[in-house]
């Protein structure tokens, strides 16, 4: 209970969705396509931040070995308080040129409310790309492909 309280305080606005029973959610489909590069599968973190880039919550993590998660830098820094909360939303790393489509539930309150979807990416012996993709979570941006500056070739969210 104490933990819960601390979480709510530190996340501020997140308190709104801390009680999911009342919150209305929308299913958002995230489609990510990677560029072709030399190297092993890329680790990705797809997460939400506020307009200032302050971490809000994790949508999906790709790449299972936790010791490499520190290379997903911005996410890892923001995510520091919610250790081990990513168990159910972690998948395998994504290979060069591959596409990935996942569906997540996002609280209605976060849409068109100044929040951003961000992706951090990292490849072994390659580079770490904090904020590879930054796209505001607005109805207007839905279904519009955004290109990344790192390993992400294009990212689209549909809702």
């Amino acid at each position: 209970m104490r933990k819960m309280k601390r979480l709510a305080v530190s996340l501020g606005l997140a308190a709104v969705i801390a009680v999911p029973a009342i919150a209305e959610t929308k299913t958002v489909t995230l489609s990510t396509t990677l560029k072709s590069y030399d190297g092993n599968g890329a680790y990705l973190a797809i997460y939400l931040t506020d307009a200032q880039g302050k971490f809000h919550s994790t949508l999906r993590v790709l790449g299972r070995k936790a010791k490499y998660h520190s290379h997903l830098r911005d996410w890892s820094r923001g995510n520091a308080f919610e250790k081990r909360k990513i168990d159910g939303i972690t998948g395998a790393s994504v290979g060069s040129g591959q596409s990935l489509k996942v569906s997540v539930d996002v609280a209605d309150a976060l849409i068109d409310a100044g929040y951003q979807i961000r992706i951090d990416s990292s490849v072994e012996n390659g580079r770490d790309n904090p904020a590879d993709v930054v796209v505001p979570l607005t109805s207007a941006n839905a279904s519009k492909p955004t290109s990344g500056k790192g390993y992400v070739k294009s990212f689209t969210f549909d809702m």
């Binding site: 936790a66 010791k67 998660h69 520190s70 890892s76 820094r77 520091a80 250790k83």
Partner: peptide, 10 residues
């Protein structure tokens, strides 16, 4: 253990 420092205290 390989002693990786996953996170240094913020």
């Amino acid at each position: 253990p390989d002693g990786t420092i996953a996170r240094i205290s913020v």
